[in-house]
Amino acid sequence: MLRLLRRLGRPLGKVIEQLGRIAAFTGHILAVTVHPPLRLREFVDEVFKAGVLSILIICVSGMAVGMVLGLQGYNTLVRFGAENSLGAVVGLSLIREMGPVLTALLTTGRAGSAVTAEIGAMKATEQLDGLRMMAVDPIDYVIRPKAWAMVVAMPLLSALFIVAGIAGGYLVGVVLMGIDSGTFLSSLENAVDFDDDVAGSILKSVIFGTLVGLISTYRGYSATPTSAGVSAATTSTVVLASVSVLIFDYFITALWRV
């Protein structure tokens, strides 16, 4: 028993140490954020990389998920003669869970890994040291725009995912299965409430954006400056960000009932 505790204790200590470092890292980002210059140019470039380049995968995935939800929902609901509630099923699933979570997972794979790899490569090629020698804080110039871009892009991507998903659900429910268009939409509109569902959805995606942004930049910044180190950091970003998104999702849902 004692041995078990000891065996658990060591990684636990490491986890706590890591958490402390991430907290200091976060504090550093916030500290440079309140200082001029604004670095709008770099921020816009990062929103392009994290957001614009993810639009296609987000919309296609959203559409596909919406269509599957429509089909599965219809097949289940029709047994109870409740297929008129399909709009509510599709809308609520997408807005409360699928949208924020799947968007975060997809963005982690698409953009978060790229952020880690880019920062890691910059470290390996001494670009971060180069910045420091030019008296420019790499956390200010490199990390900050990337982290914030993720925070800003995530809710926007999640909203696009949800709208694409609702379109997919509409396509299956109304066009393929022949539910009345007005029935589908009114079921959707009646079931979804701003305070209960939409606000929670936005809150989730902002928190997920923060998580993915912090983890991907931190992993890149703390990567071992070799090819193997950068590759390991990239993998770890995907694993760590995905797992923490899922864990946080549970707790946000439990605590705020969204």
Partner: peptide
């Protein structure tokens, strides 16, 4: 950072910002 403004460094592989 104050000290480094008086220093210039030429890195082995340039360390130019590749973006």
């Amino acid at each position: 950072y104050g000290v480094r403004r008086r220093l210039g460094m030429m890195f082995q592989n340039g360390a130019l910002l590749d973006s």
